[in-house]
């Protein structure tokens, strides 16, 4: 009996995995306007997990998975700017304010810790939370300053990227009808 209670408690303590949903589809885009040409890159390898109970959310994006139009740009992005061998991922860990399960928030605000290039910063951005019948979509668009995250632009680079780059994220999570979310 004692053991049974113990097992039950252990199971209960590990917050029910059904409440934490991992994204199934994602798109993260990086855009920088530059003098010679605009530079853009996209990855679909980013992953996110959201706790449907309280709106806690995490993102993890492998830097070297960004695809550029030109191989050389990709190499420079990884080697010169992001140093992706040293700092392989960008992460965000935070919470969506005023979160309520199954309630779409067209003007949601997420606050938390954004880590890029090994530098962690308190960060807040606007975005949208869209609940559909069988899925949840989270979108956001924000600007980050390279300087804030210690990303240096080598002084003799011909193609200079802007001091501020625009990041767009679109993540999709599956929602299972029969799962009850309890407070």
């Amino acid at each position: 009996m004692k053991n049974l209670i113990l097992v039950a408690l252990i199971l209960a303590s590990q917050a029910s995995p059904a409440q934490k949903i991992v994204s199934v589809k994602s798109k993260t885009t990086f855009f920088s306007s530059a003098v010679l040409e605009d530079i853009t890159a996209t990855t679909t390898k980013g992953k996110s997990v959201i706790n449907l109970l309280n709106g806690e959310i995490a993102f993890s994006i492998p830097i070297n998975s960004f695809k550029f139009a030109k191989s050389l740009m990709q190499e420079h992005f990884n080697e010169k700017y992001m140093e992706s061998e040293k700092f392989p991922k960008a992460t965000f860990l935070g919470r969506i304010n005023n979160w309520e399960h199954k309630k779409s928030l067209p003007e949601a605000v997420a606050t938390g810790n954004l880590m890029i290039h090994g530098v962690s910063k308190q960060f807040s951005t606007k975005g949208a939370v869209i609940f559909k019948k069988d899925k949840l979509i989270i979108e956001a668009k924000f600007n980050i300053r390279l300087e804030d995250f210690g990303v240096e632009v080598p002084s003799i680079m011909f193609q200079k990227i802007a001091e501020e780059v625009e990041i767009t994220v679109t993540y999709e999570y599956p929602i299972y009808e029969n799962v009850s979310i309890e407070k």
């Binding site: 992953k47 995490a58 993890s60 492998p62 070297n64 998975s65 990884n78 992706s84 061998e85």
Partner: peptide, 17 residues
């Protein structure tokens, strides 16, 4: 939450640049 993503994003091939 981040740990939950660790395995998913670690399971990539990292070519030396």
């Amino acid at each position: 939450l981040l740990d939950m993503l660790k395995d998913e994003t670690d399971s990539l091939i990292n070519y030396t640049n």
